[in-house]
């Protein structure tokens, strides 16, 4: 239900249950890429010392550069639970569309196709593609059938803001209950004005406006969550 309101990707497990994945947006992914870029630059400069050892050293250097160039993300994603260092810092991971871990084939596909995603320069194609896609997939993700998702619990399990539990005057359908819960969960992120403005839409339900409306909406959310 919240899938339509939110950037959740819902996958159905063979066990007959729907699992929701929190898809990562373009900003988080760009930041992760930036960190990886720095890591790679550090790797290159660390490796450049190899060239001091003459022919064999240079050979090793070239081979390492080749590996870093093409396989840096692949190796990390496959061997490190879908995370490159940048993704780990930001709590992102690559998974397949059905939520299972990426294997070699999917990871190689999505990373080699960076060549196309980079066109016509500075990841232009990737940006357009992920802005157009519901799950903010770049071209490589579409082809490989992969998603980049948030894996850490950060910002997920906050307790609802304190408010006296209040029974809603009418019985609410599940979608409405979910909307109230989401409102309550996110309300600490907004300024008081914005909270009041949004709660205004609930005036028919709460029978109040302004700060009092907000408090009542929060109370109903607590009540739905089971507080009495």
């Amino acid at each position: 239900m919240s899938a339509r309101l939110d950037t959740l990707a819902v996958v159905e497990a063979p066990e007959g249950v729907e699992l929701s994945l929190r898809v990562a947006g373009i900003t988080a992914r760009a930041l992760a890429f930036g960190i990886d870029l720095l890591v790679r630059l550090a790797l290159y400069s660390a490796l450049s010392w190899l060239s001091l050892f003459g022919g064999p050293g240079e050979a090793l250097l070239l081979l390492s550069v080749f590996v870093v160039e093409w396989f840096y993300p692949v190796l990390f994603e496959v061997l490190w639970a879908g995370q490159t260092p940048g993704k780990r810092v930001l709590g992102l991971a690559v998974v397949r569309d059905d939520g299972t871990p990426v294997g070699w084939s999917a990871s190689v596909l999505r990373n080699f196709l960076r060549v196309v995603d980079f066109l016509p320069g500075l990841y232009g194609a990737a940006i357009v593609s992920s802005l157009l896609s519901r799950d903010s997939k770049r071209i490589g993700d579409h082809v490989a059938g992969t998603l980049v998702v948030h894996v850490d619990g950060r910002g997920e399990l906050r307790a609802l803001p304190a408010a006296a539990p209040l029974a809603p005057p009418i019985s609410l359908v599940p979608e409405e209950q979910a909307a109230l819960l989401e409102f309550a969960a996110r309300s600490p992120e907004w300024k008081a004005d914005r909270r009041a403005e949004l709660a205004q839409q609930l005036a028919p339900l709460t029978g109040a406006s302004g700060a009092e409306g907000v408090q009542r909406a929060l109370g109903m959310a607590r009540w739905i969550e089971g507080a009495r």
Binding site: G54, G55, P56, E58, A59, L60, L61, L62, L63, V65, F66, E69
Partner: peptide, 13 residues
């Protein structure tokens, strides 16, 4: 020999 290895690496990359 060192050059051979180096060239090999260059060609691979």
């Amino acid at each position: 020999v060192g050059d051979n290895v180096r060239m090999f690496a260059f060609y691979v990359r």
